[in-house]
């Protein structure tokens, strides 16, 4: 199986690589469209600031290309947010694949921002969440969240309910870091690798 990680200078690729290796897969790091086009699975990682990340994707001519992919793709953390329509972080248009928007956690809600740490998820559906129970704890670290929508496949609550994971057609996103969420995270990555379309 050919698993690729989109390499667009947005950090944290090593952790995802290590997690995939633990699952017996040696991922290919690339920003080459032909390599991505022929991959079986694609991961869009992301740590950092949304406007900067979009600029990096644009530099590599990937903004129009990614939405045309048909194999399973998983965005992680910022990578998930980039699949959405728009983010308030840097006020930029994202890839527009999953019709929801990304907002900043309200500063007046009495919670600390960023949302850093282990939080539980509920409302779990979708093949990539198979075997993951509602109430499982996953590792989050983010200041912006995707609004709940028809495509939410897991919810989390921090000041307000938000999308912990999204799934639409062949596109998936996890706000949490499966590669940093111990055994539960590994299960989700394993489910993703086993998807067949």
């Amino acid at each position: 199986m050919k698993v690729t990680i989109i390499d667009y200078g947005a950090g944290n690729i090593f952790s995802v690589q290590s997690a995939l290796r633990r699952l017996g897969v040696e991922p290919i790091l690339t920003d080459d469209k032909a390599t991505l086009f022929t991959a079986d699975k694609i991961i869009l990682p992301g740590v950092g600031e949304a406007a900067y990340a979009m600029e990096q994707l644009r530099k590599r001519d990937l903004v129009e290309f990614i939405p045309t992919l048909t194999q399973p793709l998983m965005g992680i953390c910022l990578g998930m947010q980039l699949l959405c329509n728009h983010t308030d972080e840097g006020n930029v248009e994202c890839l527009g694949i999953i019709p929801t928007n990304v907002k900043r956690f309200p500063s007046d809600a009495g919670v600390k921002i960023p949302h850093v740490g282990w939080n539980s998820i509920s409302g779990v559906t979708s093949p990539i969440m198979e075997g993951v129970e509602s109430g499982s704890y996953l590792y989050f670290v983010h200041s912006y969240y995707a609004e709940l929508c028809e495509w939410s496949i897991a919810e989390c609550n921090y000041a307000l309910p938000f999308a912990a994971a999204l799934g639409k057609d062949n596109f998936y996103g996890c706000q949490f870091h499966p590669e940093k969420s111990a055994l539960v995270g590994e299960k989700i990555l394993d489910n993703f690798l086993k998807l067949t379309i």
Partner: peptide, 8 residues
């Protein structure tokens, strides 16, 4: 914070 996010 600007380049990698404040959570970093």
């Amino acid at each position: 914070a600007k380049e990698f996010g404040s959570q970093c």
